[in-house]
Design a protein around this nucleic acid. Structure first.
Lengths: 340, 340
DNA sequence: TTGAAAGCGGTACCAT
DNA sequence: ATGGTACCGCTTTCAA
């Protein structure tokens, strides 16, 4: 391992000077700086990030914690954030929380808050208060933490307006009896302030139904876990039950994929028999057969907002903190699954 | 930030004792240890990983570098490795190289080799020699580095045998004129030792064709970049060209997804007009319409092999190193895309 | 069994 | 403009 001392020695200067020179401090005269840089290059010197981090609290790395690495939406989000960060000269390390409390806690405590200058985090099972403690005072930006008065900066997906847009679109293409997949109707009935992503999307649906003067009942909302297996099984059930829905809004594209597959299993044609809309805009949605109409979250916009917020916090001193709350852009992408 | 000194003070012992106690060193008597643990718990102490890493060179974190976060196969692999590592009490940090040399180099130099005890790496644009230097002496396991005499431990996907299995299957279901998508025929013609994944898979195909006594020419192999857009466009081209292939093997499931979508655009029916096989076994493949027959790499097996190799290297002292080379299990998953 | 102290590789203050 | 040096938090040797 070649260290700063090696470089300093090779360049005939002190460790301090070498350190300043390599970081471009203007106090070092150009020729000395050049001497140091040459020595560093010749020795293939790389700064030790642990040491730098220990001393200065900064190492140019940000952490990102997402639920699952192997699900299309979070991993596309991770890629977008990663690329945005690298545009700012930062590296991103990604970890998966496995959507469990222990996962979230141990990631925050052990890695993200320690090895990084700041973090972007999708909280699922940890309260804001716990987060404050676990963050160790490091800047943190939350994703889709929909609490009414958050204590961290937050970037949200366009839940309400996006869902509303989806329902509007189904009505536009002539649907009269719409099924919403992935939201618990009771969650809002019990608590209009419910802050989960599914509750906010559900709220958007209800608003749209109301705007169109459409009657809906709890039967129009079916809750399942957000995975394609369950969506496929649900489609089978819906078809067998004989209920006559002519439009479906799935809370995520992955659910829509499973649901459409389930309909195909039963010989139900999309969009002729049933129109389907998803949410997220994952890359694959354009390749499904039929291709999927979806409320596409602009991940580049989301990434830019999240990274900028984080950088601002990292660069400021943390006094008089006032959390900001932003929402990512989106657009409705019309495709075959609602084309009729 | 609560440090070890705080804990030591609260427990009325020295820093050294606190350190030993928290790591369960048997030299500390149980009651002292308990006192320390209690203090640590009460103060919500968490060890600073940078400091630990700086001093001892270990922090319980392994690094994983993959090409792209937002592609199904690498992200599923990342998830599998992440879960396997956590079974061994290790955290995994994932980074994407964006399949560029600068990406790979900067990740290795700056983060993975510094912040981690070891790393698992998919090399794309960096030679073994460069890797040795960039690894900074830390243990490293390579994924799909198919050089004949590697200098690191390697876990490979079952390229040759997998591809051979795919072609065998197409022949089994009656295909007579098979197209292979994603491999450059010339790559093998020029260099039978070519070590890229696509060349090894191509080699498997040629072997299978040979076994079945089937004549093939360069026209049976079409190279494109491994993304679904190009696969879709290629399908259009193939259909328009009027060539009469009755079976297609795509080098990855993502390619197959794009290709099938392209066929659907042209009204070509899979599997009746053309049977399609993919490679990887991504989760989505079961949900495509038609569902995709694929050579499914056992990612749990791959993850277990990679993590175990890495752990062995981390725990040993590095003398008389002899690189190992393992291959992940796989199985052919028969689905609708070849069902006839 | 426990404590003192050196040191990992940087950074940043204070001298010179 | 550059150098000396304390120090970030933890581990580990050595001494008591």
């Amino acid at each position: 391992m070649v260290t700063m001392s090696d470089v300093a020695k090779a360049a005939g200067v002190s460790r301090a000077t070498a350190s300043y020179a390599l970081r471009g401090d203007p106090r070092i005269v150009p020729e000395t700086a050049e001497k140091v840089r040459t020595a560093a290059r010749r020795l293939h010197y790389t700064a030790n990030l642990s040491a730098r981090s220990l001393r200065s609290g900064r190492n140019g790395v940000i952490g990102l914690a997402i639920f699952e690495l192997d699900r299309a939406y979070p991993s596309e989000m991770g890629a977008a954030i990663s690329r945005e960060a690298s545009r700012h000269g930062l590296q991103t390390i990604v970890q998966e929380t496995s959507n469990s409390k222990e996962g979230e806690v141990s990631i925050l405590r052990k890695v993200t808050s320690q090895l990084c200058d700041g973090m972007i985090f999708s909280p699922g099972n940890v309260s804001d208060e716990e987060l404050r403690e676990l963050s160790g005072g490091k800047p943190m930006v939350l994703l889709d933490d929909l609490s009414p008065d958050p204590i961290f900066d937050t970037v949200n997906t366009p839940c309400e307006i996006g869902a509303q847009t989806a329902i509007d679109h189904l009505v536009d293409v002539g649907c009269q009896n719409i099924l919403v997949v992935g939201a618990r109707y009771e969650s809002l009935a019990e608590d209009a302030q419910s802050t989960s992503v599914s509750a906010r999307r559900l709220y958007g649906c209800l608003k749209a139904f109301d705007d169109h003067g459409m009657e809906v009942s709890p039967e129009n909302f079916l809750y399942i876990n957000w995975n394609p297996e369950d969506a496929r099984a649900l489609a089978h059930q819906v078809v067998r039950s004989g209920q006559r829905f002519d439009g479906v809004f799935c809370m995520t594209d992955t659910l829509a994929m499973g649901f459409i597959r389930g309909l195909a299993d039963c010989g139900v044609h999309v969009p002729n028999d049933m129109a389907v809309v998803g949410f997220d805009g994952i890359n694959e949605s354009d390749y499904f057969v039929p291709s999927l109409t979806t409320v596409s979250t602009d991940l580049n916009d989301l990434a830019a907002k999240a990274v900028n917020l984080l950088l601002k916090r990292i660069d400021e001193d943390g006094t008089d903190f006032k959390p900001e709350k932003l929402t990512a852009d989106f657009r409705l992408v019309r495709r075959e699954s609602t084309g009729r």
